[in-house]
Design a protein around this nucleic acid. Sequence first.
DNA 1: TTACAAAATGACCAACGCTGTCATTGTTTG
DNA 2: CAAACAATGACAGCGTTGGTCATTTTGTAA
Lengths: 359, 359
Amino acid sequence: MKVTINDVADLAGVSIKTVSRVMNNEPSVKKATLDKVNAAIAELNYQPNAAARNLAGTRSYSIGYIYDNPNAYYVIDMQRGLLDACRKNGYELLIHPTNAKSAGIVQEVIELVQHARLAGLVLTPPFSEMPEIAEALEKIGVDFVRIISGSTPSPKLTNCVLVDDFTAAFKITNHLLELGHTDIAFLCGDEEHSSSGERLAGFQAALTKRGIHANPKFVVPGSYSFESGVKGAKHLLGLGQRPTAIFACNDEIAAGALFSARLSNVDIPTELSIVGFENSPFSRQTWPPLTTANQPNSTIAMQAAELLFKHARPAGHQLNTTEQQPVFIPELLVRESTAICPNPALSTTQKSAQKNTRS
Amino acid sequence: MKVTINDVADLAGVSIKTVSRVMNNEPSVKKATLDKVNAAIAELNYQPNAAARNLAGTRSYSIGYIYDNPNAYYVIDMQRGLLDACRKNGYELLIHPTNAKSAGIVQEVIELVQHARLAGLVLTPPFSEMPEIAEALEKIGVDFVRIISGSTPSPKLTNCVLVDDFTAAFKITNHLLELGHTDIAFLCGDEEHSSSGERLAGFQAALTKRGIHANPKFVVPGSYSFESGVKGAKHLLGLGQRPTAIFACNDEIAAGALFSARLSNVDIPTELSIVGFENSPFSRQTWPPLTTANQPNSTIAMQAAELLFKHARPAGHQLNTTEQQPVFIPELLVRESTAICPNPALSTTQKSAQKNTRS
DNA sequence: TTACAAAATGACCAACGCTGTCATTGTTTG
DNA sequence: CAAACAATGACAGCGTTGGTCATTTTGTAA
């Protein structure tokens, strides 16, 4: 019932050392031998004993995922991607929910890594944006991959998976622009999250490119919550001059804005267009469903994990995957919360949109 | 840097075997020795190496959590509770998202358990309600704990943690009743989930106890989704004789109902009261926030894990915890979506509520 | 074809940190 | 004082990796 390396060796007619070599992708194994061994492995459905490997080997076969994020959907999606990558590569995933704001957080992470003998760590916001964590990890020489907001790969960001919030926001804004909107408001997320800043920048860049001067009153600060969306939209709709579209920094904010609009008897999308960001289940549970940007969290997580595995592999065992820095651009997902601008002629915003700059 | 059992033994002046005995709560260790060893353990901050334990011992130090649930909040909460229990007891948690409806699901679970050498499994719906899973697990002799809907402990349910949906629903309904409502509708969740049936039963029992005959038209089938709530409420509000309160089987349905009411220009809670169930973050993100039943998922999960650990401990190593079958009753959480019945006098439902039967 | 270098494989053993088994030593108790 | 039992220790072994060499096979140039 329990298949060990000895069984495989016997069946393949080789020594256990050779099986071990195969299992660890060591060089200097003849193609023919490799095939024989792999066949035996497959036939017996051999899975190396993780405990024994950990004990005997110098390498580690588990990575960690630390999280502190109120968005359960985000966490679950990330986790799913990490788990998939781990299964594929024979790693285990250690999950560690914690409080990013606790005083001893750096120490906690260090202890976790050392005690669990982790091969590496996948860091998502807010951890990926905490320099003290990165420093501490570098100091003790533990690999880690950060998932952060950014558009341009750079040498400083070698161990990062980038999510190009800027470009995605640019595209979403273009969608609104193409519908004829020019008075577009922006509901920000938490200031501390760089994603909010990136999205705002992309939004403003799109406007600028069309020669539209963004109304500063239309950029309202807030946080990544439903409440914030309710408040923000209420504020905007109370303005003498209303926007005809709202770019909410994420789906929750958008849902809140939707709610507020409903309260004020503003019809969506005929009177007001609203877009979200993230394509969380949330965005499908509103009415109308939200136009949003699809952020493939599971895939992003998978890539991050793969990057980690690549690093973790000792020299000489490298797979010849083309080394590169992944950049994800969330894609525009048009649903029913956006429509043609009701009366673009009446817009009071200064504009000079002569050239139609499509990408 | 790495503290092993040898270091502890040296410091305490005993053999490593004795340290092992202490770590495993084995009997026949003199009090004085025990104290010495414990002091050494504390001083060195010794943590046994999980890999070595797994390799050497016959016991396993990890449990599994299989899930397939669209409700990310539920999963995250459960996971949190399991993780906490595991940390406290020195276990590891293996997480396995999968598809409950896939054909080979039983086989998949078996393989998971055998390959990962799991000490046991924590099963939540839908797995906890699949007899074939329980049978297969029993057949191969693997411990498991099920979290299921139910109110009465029974010998058949020794390895279950019960969530008393019936009583919770009864209480919620009473809340509505005390506010003067008698025309109360019920929006069901998925038929396959026993929780939906239990909640409906509790609802009906509460009505019956007050001598109120439930209007069959007010019980509308559906599923645990926002969409279903939208539809269900729309249907109810279209009825010639409207209910003055709606009991939604969970918060999502309630949110949908809220949405529908808003569309029909029915004010919540002055014209219509709505209650949800679960106290998911969802219920705080609606407006007004939902009156609901607080289901302490993390705590439930913790208890389930503890139960599993207790079983997993070999005879003679039993902790003298009083063996019992935990039953959780979600507590009523009154927020702003419920209010006094607008015009109870006009109610058309047959009633005979003379005695005020409070519990 | 031979000779020789290089590549591929195997045999062996010591870890890794812990638990299980069984033998041994202490400590009571009648 | 010996039997009886409690407390402790010695030692093997869990399944694998990482060495070190020895041996075999293969490839290559003469």
